[in-house]
Design a protein around this nucleic acid. Structure first.
Lengths: 201, 201
DNA sequence: CCAAAATTGGACCTGCAAGTCCAAAACCCG
DNA sequence: CGGGTTTTGGACTTGCAGGTCCAATTTTGG
């Protein structure tokens, strides 16, 4: 079934997903036609429906998964190693740098706003992404607590939830305003707050 | 020009905007057809294009403005009177209650994600909303500083920016997960942090 | 090297939703 | 009341994007 994929076929499929993802990031989900994807990836309509029998919806789902994975990969290796303050700051810098560079071209926006409504599966992908993201942050907080760098009475999960929300909102506001002020404020204030608490313990 | 509106005409126009807004909140921007609006508001195509000559785009813009205004109105009178801790908490409760009730049906999502790309004017509306929102919060922080309830060394604008981002992200996550956990965490942790700082001053 | 299966190209179909048009009805004001 | 204007209804046009189909070509495995 899924085993019916030649090396060449797999390559084409991947090319379509990556190309479509780029196109969508650039111009938004509902501005991208299948024809655009075809042109941009050098494929034909027959190929699109060969690799994605359910058409656009299935393609969007694949793109969503691809983009979601990418979001977390971009934060490595910091995100998985939030064990010292320098790492936290490096993570902070990476986030800001990444989103500043990317500007208005946000994969998440497309995933959440548009794809989410259509494909029920996309919802699950986003939830999965957020869950992994938040878990990684919470894990970081706990490790810092174990070394005494963060006060033990802090609720790691709740803090991670708030920080994640702040990041998402910061990115969202970046999309509207074009500025990273909000994202920076969230990260700086939250991290400062966590550091300040350490001495209290 | 705009004065060529009979009392009846104005009523019809308003009915269209309100009805379209409800429809969009319920089912998402790109799931709502003009025909749906017509059915839901008891109007004809002729009327739609009579009151919104530029068609769907112009209608969406009007809806966006309407929804944006509504967002802030829903937070009154608390948002304009963040002068005591009880008011802050009441504001917090109102926000959570409102978004919990509204669930996945979020006007902002539609405005930002979909409308934003299409109509350049919608972008401006969202920015305006965020600006007013953030300004109101910052004003609240400053007033609390003037009464000594919040530490004077806190950067009101930056704090407001972070809080606003947190709220937006919290709502965004509510859309994906269906839970208000993130929103609550942001509000509680931020407000607690502000209160804790007071004694330091 | 051959048959079966996967891959590819692109013409064609189809449905739908935005937008156009105009004539009928209601309304306003002197 | 009466002429001009606004309001209303709904049939019709149009373009387009997703999806179908199939025949040609390449690849694979034995």
């Amino acid at each position: 079934m899924t085993r019916a994929l030649t090396r060449k076929g797999a390559a084409t499929r991947a090319r379509i997903v990556v190309g479509a993802a780029a196109e969508i990031r650039e111009r938004g989900v509902d501005e991208v036609r299948l024809e655009d994807v075809m042109a941009h990836t050098g494929t034909s309509k027959g190929q699109l429906f060969h690799y994605f029998p359910d058409g656009k919806e299935e393609l969007l789902l694949a793109v969503a998964q691809h983009e979601a994975d990418q979001v977390l990969l971009d934060q490595e290796p910091m995100l998985s190693n939030l064990t010292t303050w320098p790492t936290w700051l490096a993570w902070r810098d990476r986030l800001i740098e990444r989103y500043r560079a990317q500007g208005v071209k946000c994969p998440l926006n497309g995933l959440l706003g548009q794809t989410g409504r259509r494909a029920p599966g996309a919802q699950a992908i986003v939830v999965g992404l957020m869950w992994r993201w938040q878990t990684a942050i919470a894990e970081g907080v706990r490790r810092m607590q174990s070394t005494g760098d963060i006060a033990p009475d802090i609720d790691a999960d709740r803090t991670a939830a708030a920080l994640l929300a702040g990041i998402q909102g910061g990115v969202l506001l970046l999309l509207s305003t074009g500025r990273t002020d909000h994202l920076e404020a969230v990260l700086d204030l939250t991290i400062d707050s966590l550091r300040a608490g350490a001495r209290t313990a």
